[in-house]
Computed example of a mutant assay.
Amino acid sequence: MVVRKRNYFMIYIKSIIDIECDKLPKESYLRKIPCVKNFQGIDFGKAVTFFVGDNGTGKSTLLEAIAVTLGFNPEGGSGNFCFSTRDTHSELSDVMRVSRGVKKAKDGFFLRAESFYNVATEIENLADGAYSFYNGYGGKSMHSQSHGESFRSLMMNRFRGNGIYLLDEPEAALSPTTQMSMLCILKELEKLDSQFIIVTHSPILLAYPNSDIYEFDEEGIEKKGYKETESYLVTKSFLDNPEQMINLLFEK
């Protein structure tokens, strides 16, 4: 069997060229986020790119802006999802310049853990009693599956390939074992010319081979190797000696 090597032109979004911070309202909280005010560009040269870093460093905010720029609903879903539970997305997409690949994606989905309940409800509304509609979601309502089952069903059945998939903390619903199975799903979808941008804290997911990892911190954004990331280093330190780490944490 001949395996076609992935080339640059199969990347559907090539880079974030610039964020024109001076065009944001002066009172905008976005001006204070390091990844925005110190932005120097991000290249997406691999099938899978990870955003990693501490809470509040702007990972999810940037991913949401990418999603909106690409035409996805800010709360999640495919490009056809037009519902809004609460309009809270930022204006970052309005000042962000994105470079797209030559080939247009045929499929796509924006999965964000915090609002997936609303997406599952919208899927039910769209199905309107037609159970065949659920074929792309594991054969049944997302609400009738556990949180983790619904995430896995979505990736296995709804993600069809030849598309771009934005995932915001998918590990929030996944056990360690299921996270490892997700690595296999990513690999199969990569073979089908898929591109992923994933916000995660999971050292399991970050181990995906031949991926790019961008770490967000108080200085901005920096590309890191897997074993250089805080997620890996802190988790490894804890697991290597949990008793010592607990004693340090509880020390008075």
Rank of each mutant, 00 (worst) to 15 (best):
K5H: 11
K5G: 14
K5E: 15
R6V: 07
R6Y: 13
N7S: 10
N7I: 15
F9S: 09
F9M: 15
I11P: 06
I11N: 14
Y12E: 00
Y12S: 07
I13T: 03
I13C: 01
I13Y: 00
K14N: 13
I16K: 00
I16V: 12
I16Y: 02
I17R: 14
I17C: 05
I17Q: 15
D18E: 15
D18A: 08
I19V: 07
E20K: 09
C21E: 09
K23R: 07
K23H: 02
L24D: 13
P25H: 10
K26S: 14
K26N: 11
E27C: 06
S28N: 03
Y29T: 09
L30R: 07
R31V: 08
I33D: 02
I33Y: 04
P34M: 13
C35G: 03
V36P: 04
K37F: 04
N38W: 08
N38Q: 11
F39Y: 12
F39P: 04
F39I: 02
F39M: 01
F39C: 14
Q40K: 13
Q40P: 06
G41T: 03
I42F: 00
I42C: 01
D43P: 03
D43H: 07
F44D: 02
G45I: 06
K46T: 14
K46M: 12
V48T: 03
T49Q: 01
T49G: 00
F50W: 03
F50S: 00
F50I: 09
F50M: 02
F51M: 07
F51R: 00
